[in-house]
Design a protein around this nucleic acid. Sequence first.
DNA 1: ACAAAAGTGTTCGATATACACCCATGT
DNA 2: ACATGGGTGTATATCGAACACTTTTGT
Lengths: 219, 219
Amino acid sequence: MSKFYQSVTADIVIFTIENDELKVLLIKRVKKPFKNQWALPGGFLLENEPPEKAALRVLRDKAGMGNMYMEQLYTFPGSGRDPRGNVITVTYFALAPINKMLAKPNKGQNPTLHLLKKLPELAFDHEKIIDYALKRLRSKLEYTNAIYSLLPKYFTFNHLQKTYELIFGRKLDKRNFRKKFMMLGLIKSTKKLHKGIRQRPAQLYQFTSRKPTELKKFF
Amino acid sequence: MSKFYQSVTADIVIFTIENDELKVLLIKRVKKPFKNQWALPGGFLLENEPPEKAALRVLRDKAGMGNMYMEQLYTFPGSGRDPRGNVITVTYFALAPINKMLAKPNKGQNPTLHLLKKLPELAFDHEKIIDYALKRLRSKLEYTNAIYSLLPKYFTFNHLQKTYELIFGRKLDKRNFRKKFMMLGLIKSTKKLHKGIRQRPAQLYQFTSRKPTELKKFF
DNA sequence: ACAAAAGTGTTCGATATACACCCATGT
DNA sequence: ACATGGGTGTATATCGAACACTTTTGT
């Protein structure tokens, strides 16, 4: 059998939470096709570059971000979806707390956070990819500790709960949430308090580990 | 940014159950690299061929099989894993009941079922891919009706239970299994009986639907 | 004093698990 | 008659869901 060559891109869905809203990072395309439309940050693989390396490069160069949680999502076929011809897209999804986002944004591409609920019209089939990523995000939170990657080092229980509520789109019971989460042993209390607000100060917590771990059960 | 081109393969992990054992289909490589070693069926993508089409083509041409349950697994990088250079591998996993396997096997490649527990030394990183596939298979059985794709049209409750036991590697309680499974409403009793054996004949069941469906819960 | 979020237990229903005997058939 | 898997119910433990009031701070 003869070999044929494909052009391959890596596209990344980067989620974060800002102002109690789940957001996605989009860039504005400066080239054809879909010039001036919003799209996921992405780019072609370089020679001999593994897809994951390419994704990390895009994260750095196009979105101006350093290390964060990232995993592969799915590989989409090119036929029919990209006017440039036969392009295969390996997609990734990444999570970061807002304070790690956009450290050194690439101004030319205008990377901007968009409300997940109110996305603009997107290039290629990027809307479908974002849907897929959200599904994966939810499922990951059910059986891993991935939530740590959306939170800063210190956080309150309320902050943690709000994060789940935003992603799953439903309210949770405060007492049950605490009970269940404490039993998992993922977080530990610090002696610090969240001061400087006009209510009773809350305990600050931190994760016992910030490495990806699978859990038996969850939500 | 300039475009570079990659060569891309599709490799498939095909599981089936034969003689109460979970097995994987392997072919014997006829070309370098890894000539004469066992490997997953796979091949390069043709020009403009989407990865999934290529996987289906491999299923047909290399393994001699028609339609069956198949889904994408993961896309592995090429660097360092394939002596042929920079190859990206999109992997799939497929399931079929033994009676659908090897209808028209490609004799040259010698496609053969191997005990999952006792695999020979494999080409490339195919052992890692099989491990990954087994993990996915187990997880799929926990929240989808995928099990239908490993069973023939008519089957006994015992056959169904054995199938789960084999894949998860542990015994299940007969009564609890029945109770739970019947509540799911995935199967319906037929009037037929499993005759021609020397014990009391068992009821034959069939799936109410043979389309992939997600369930709320499972095992 | 009051506004605002923090923190804390118990009850109830649903689900999962453990467990043993009789039945129908072929030989 | 007997060997073999087929078929059935109950009791207990565990887990998840519902639910309201007191506490601590800043203003």
